[in-house]
Simulated assay, not measured.
Amino acid sequence: MGNKPAKQEREEIFLKVVPPLDRAYVRWLARDLERIHGFTPANPRAVKPPDHYIEYMRLNGWLDVDLSDPDLAHLFK
């Protein structure tokens, strides 16, 4: 029941080598990603869930908003 010898740690150096990239491609890719992720629709349409979802939510008390309320009708068009 003696002490176990400590494991010898090997010194390893990992290098990450990146192949050379075309600067024009990198600029195009950065601009394209910015355009995609910065996109917001100008006039998003409301989505009405299926009737059985609405009924299920109403039965469980998850739906506190009446979707047929005339004051809220402009939000669901």
Rank of each mutant, 00 (worst) to 15 (best):
M1C: 01
M1N: 00
M1W: 01
G2S: 09
G2E: 06
G2L: 08
N3W: 02
K4V: 04
K4P: 02
K4D: 04
K4M: 09
A6V: 09
A6L: 08
K7C: 01
K7M: 06
K7E: 10
E9M: 12
R10A: 10
E11I: 08
E12H: 01
I13W: 04
I13K: 15
F14H: 11
L15V: 13
K16P: 01
V18C: 02
P19S: 13
L21N: 05
L21I: 11
D22Q: 11
D22Y: 05
R23Y: 00
R23Q: 12
A24S: 13
Y25H: 11
Y25N: 11
W28L: 08
D32N: 09
L33N: 12
E34R: 03
E34L: 06
E34H: 01
R35C: 05
R35L: 09
I36C: 05
F39D: 06
F39Y: 15
T40E: 11
P41Q: 09
A42G: 03
A42D: 15
A42R: 12
A42Q: 13
A42K: 13
P44Q: 03
R45I: 02
R45T: 13
A46G: 02
A46S: 14
A46E: 04
V47D: 03
K48T: 14
K48C: 04
K48N: 11
K48Y: 04
K48R: 15
P50N: 07
P50K: 10
D51E: 14
H52E: 12
H52M: 06
H52K: 06
H52L: 05
Y53C: 08
Y53M: 11
Y56L: 15
Y56T: 12
M57T: 00
M57W: 10
M57N: 02
M57K: 05
R58Y: 00
L59R: 15
N60R: 15
N60W: 01
N60C: 07
N60V: 02
G61V: 05
W62N: 11
L63T: 02
L63M: 15
L63C: 08
D64A: 11
D64G: 14
V65R: 13
D66H: 04
D69P: 01
D69H: 09
P70E: 07
P70C: 08
D71Y: 08
L72E: 05
L72V: 06
L72Q: 08
L75M: 13
F76S: 05
K77R: 14
K77S: 09
K77W: 05
